[in-house]
Measured scan of single mutants.
Amino acid sequence: FDIYVVTADYLPLGAEQDAITLREGQYVEVLDAAHPLRWLVRTKPTKSSPSRQGWVSPAYLDRRL
């Protein structure tokens, strides 16, 4: 999967189903980028939180090589 970094805090609107909150600087794996406005991502697990999966706007993501 492609690795992206979150460029700004992402707080989903209440109406968005299956969306997750992301923090600036967080790394995520993009699982599904087929839709231009919503990408399915999975967060990297940390010592304090397990990995999470949900939909985010790709405008908040920047690809890492």
Rank of each mutant, 00 (worst) to 15 (best):
V5S: 03
V6G: 00
I3E: 08
D18N: 09
P36K: 07
A15L: 11
S51A: 12
Q17I: 14
L61S: 00
G14N: 13
F1W: 11
R63S: 08
V5P: 01
D32G: 02
Q26T: 12
E16F: 08
Q26E: 15
A15F: 13
Q53I: 15
D18Q: 07
T46G: 08
P45G: 13
L31W: 03
R42E: 03
L61E: 01
L65K: 10
L61C: 02
L31P: 00
Y4N: 01
S57E: 08
A8E: 09
R38T: 05
Y10T: 05
T46R: 05
G25Y: 03
V6E: 00
A8R: 15
P58R: 05
E29C: 10
Y60N: 07
S48M: 12
F1K: 08
I3K: 04
W55D: 01
V6H: 00
Q17V: 14
L37A: 10
D18M: 07
W39K: 00
L31A: 01
S49R: 09
V5T: 05
E16N: 09
G54V: 11
Y27F: 13
Q53D: 06
G54H: 05
D32S: 08
R63F: 15
T21D: 10
E16H: 09
Y27S: 06
K47H: 12
G14Q: 13
R23T: 10
A15P: 11
D9R: 05
E16W: 10
A34T: 15
L31F: 02
L37I: 06
P50D: 08
T46W: 07
Q26R: 03
R42K: 07
I20V: 07
E29P: 00
P12D: 06
P45E: 12
P45A: 14
R23K: 13
G25M: 02
A34I: 08
F1P: 10
R63W: 11
S51H: 04
R38I: 06
P50C: 07
A33G: 09
K44C: 15
I20Y: 06
H35W: 07
R64Y: 15
I20N: 02
V56L: 04
G25T: 02
D2L: 14
P12N: 08
R63V: 10
L65A: 13
T7V: 14
T7M: 09
S48D: 15
L65R: 09
L13K: 11
S49Q: 14
D18G: 14
P12C: 06
G25F: 03
A19Q: 10
I20H: 03
P45C: 09
P58Y: 02
P36N: 06
I20L: 12
S57M: 05
S57A: 07
H35T: 09
L61H: 01
Y4L: 03
V41C: 03
W39Y: 03
L61F: 03
V28P: 00
